[in-house]
Structures are given as C-alpha cells and as structure tokens.
Amino acid sequence: MMLNKALEFILNEAIRLDEGHGAAFKPLEDKVFTLTLNDLGTTSHLLFTAYGVSVQSDLQGDADATIETSLVALLALPQTSELKGAVFHGDEPLAEQFVDALNSLEIDWEEHLSHYTGDLIAFKVGHAARSVMQTKQGIKQQAGDTLKEYLQFEINALPTKSQVQRFNQQVVQIHQSVDALENRIDTLLKSATTASH
C-alpha cells in the first residue's frame, strides 16, 4: 500500500512539474496498466484519468497493458531511456507509449526550486548538483579504467580488445581450414569408393 502511494505521489508530481505539462500522458486517459516489479515481487495497477494517475493493489478485470520489469530498471529509466529487460503483455504499443511518456518527462528543477529559494540560490544548488554529477561520472570512468588495466595488464585475467580481435580472426581462419579439409576428405572418400567399384 505504501509503495503504491509513493508511486502515485511521484508520478503525479513528475507530471505536474513536467515542462510539457504531462501532455504525453493525455492519450493514456482512461487506460489501466499493470506494473509488476519482479525484484520487489509487487504488482500495482496504474489508472490514468483526467485527474492524473492513481495506483492501487487490486483491479476488477484485466489491464489494457501489463509491464513486467524491475525497480532498478525503472529507476534507471532517466539515464537509459529504456526499460531494460522489460516484458510487455496485452496492448504492447500502448505499453511502449507509456514508457515513452515516462521518458518524455522533463523537469527543470532549478526553475521550480527558484520559486521557493530565489534565482541565486536555485542556480547555486543546480550548479553544485551538476558538479557532483560530473565528479561522480569522472570517478566512475576512472574506476572503470583502473580496474580494466589491472585485470588486463597486471594479472592478465582479461584479454585486451586487440587480443580478442586477433583471437576471433584465428577462429575464422581455423574454421575455414577445417571446412577446406572436410571438402578434401570428402573428395578422397568419393575417389576411394569409385576405385573400389
């Protein structure tokens, strides 16, 4: 129940703050979606009407579309722009339209924050948030590079990209050689059979 209430609040607030005033959700009016979050083992029903989104645990009858995904994929949606590993049932184009509508949400946090704090503070908070995001991105990139170098060059646990390419070329060459050998053996066998007759 609490998850549904939280989901309902977040979706309605996101639509309210959206730059496009939630226009992408208009075609979904009077539609019902069932959202299953496999990692949490929960199922919620999302009801779209002119009043916004309502979320509830039970539903009489079937939803127009069902989306099976994970909370992780849902939370990552703003970064990935797709619900990775999601499975759609029912009206699949409608389910895709729902995901597209979620993707289309654009919230200018600085603008909304400035109503409460004034422009200067909102800008400073936004600037600080962007710096944190950039730093986080930099640290992530650096950590990835360091781990890659350690695994590839220090302990030779993983091959480099060029080694993998070379290996793939060798596999192709071997494959071709085996095919050629198979053809020669076939030819020899046919010759031997003809000779024995």
Partner: peptide
C-alpha cells in the same frame, strides 16, 4: 480504496 479494484468508467 485499493481493495475495491475500481477502474475508469465504473
């Protein structure tokens, strides 16, 4: 409300 299972059009 959640247990009602209500839907648009009801």
């Amino acid at each position: 409300i959640e247990l009602s299972g209500i839907r648009p059009g009801n």
